[in-house]
Design a protein around this nucleic acid. Structure first.
Lengths: 204, 204
DNA sequence: CGTGTAGGTGTACGGCATACGCTCACCATT
DNA sequence: AATGGTGAGCGTATGCCGTACACCTACACG
């Protein structure tokens, strides 16, 4: 009977993501998204309860796009590594959303589906019960932490420049390590850390 | 010559932390901190450039309080575990600051000092060069991620309740795992995940 | 006992999320 | 073809926020 809806929540999430990708996370506001869609600010509230939900939609859009088809043919560790890498790539394609993924992760269907996929691989590998819980949470923690370190740290680049001006005497190891750090690129570093976790998980 | 300062930056950070602990992070505002200190809002700007710096001070206050004295007498893995646990405990005592620690971590002297301590233990264990870089970043990523998962997830408790209402068919492993999860308490889970990383680090 | 520097205050502005009430387009019924 | 109700979309207003600016004032020094 009534006038039909002219937008889907997906379109709204896409508009918000466009704003974030173009102007950065601080530029995300109800006004900005409405402008992006060519409608008034308040019209947005017909589709979305509040800003929180808008953010949730953006996170779902990004996290929901991760390919969860089982990577087959290799070891279980490698299959998990593929799932983790897909997640990292998807989030990494939209660095501005990283802080949002943190705040809204726990109510994301996308992350639950991803977790389910990882649990499946772990189960195949013979990791059971308590061990499996710990393994999943460990993987999730590492992945989440590493993605953040990567994007929030490089955001300003202040991290590395601050390193340069450190008092050598107080930070001998850090100074020495900084030299090596420049030789390890982000992908290798991420994979290296992931391997630490994967090595620590004991299969059957 | 001029009138002396009546406050230190530490006192300001403590006031801000008090606001966060009492009323939560969203309640943190220049006005609230000024009120906490019994002065006008703008007086704050005599001690702090802007809100960013205020947040930085709070993070430094929390992170700077971590005891870095070398835990001696046990294996290197246990020594690292102690350093990690101290950090977790310090941050965990102020859950509201968790999101701030993320945003400001990369310019925190406290975290650099902590990293230096961890690097020292790793060096003692014979972990060198690239391996040491990867180990540190892995530990940092896990620690940061795990602390966040712990506090942001439980923040609303929505995570666990959402789990209950999941379609069993689509999430068989998650459903099964949720049962086990209730049996593992947060401390064990954190330590379990950390052990995964520690096991993965190869010494001499 | 002045005097200048810097501490402290009050006001004001622009931007934010959002509550509220209005108009009017659409569609099902008559 | 006329009509009526439902909900889409908009304009306005409120009360937060950070902070720029101009102004007083207390103090340490000469």
């Amino acid at each position: 009977m009534p006038r039909p809806r002219s937008l889907t929540q997906d379109q709204i999430a896409e508009a918000a993501l466009a704003v974030i990708d173009r102007d950065g996370l601080p530029a995300l506001s109800m006004r900005a998204v409405a402008a992006e869609l060519g409608m008034s600010t308040m019209a947005l509230y017909r589709y979305v309860d509040d800003r929180q939900e808008l953010e949730r939609l953006v996170v779902e859009l990004v996290l929901g796009g991760v390919d969860l088809s089982p990577p087959s043919g290799t070891s279980w560790r490698e299959r998990i590594a593929v799932l983790v890498a897909r997640m990292r790539d998807h989030v990494g394609a939209h660095p501005g959303v990283v802080p949002l993924t943190m705040t809204h992760r726990h109510r994301s269907l996308g992350i639950l589906r991803w977790s389910e996929a990882v649990l499946g691989v772990l189960a195949d590998a013979g990791v059971e019960g308590r061990e499996r819980v710990v393994a999943l949470r460990g993987l999730l923690s590492y992945t989440v932490g590493a993605i953040q370190l990567e994007h929030l740290a490089s955001l300003s680049g202040a991290g590395t420049t601050a390193l340069a001006g450190l008092p050598r005497a107080e930070f001998p190891y850090t100074a020495e390590t900084a030299g090596h750090a420049r030789l390890v690129d982000a992908d290798e570093e991420f994979r290296g850390g992931l391997d630490l976790v994967l090595r620590g998980i004991r299969d059957t």
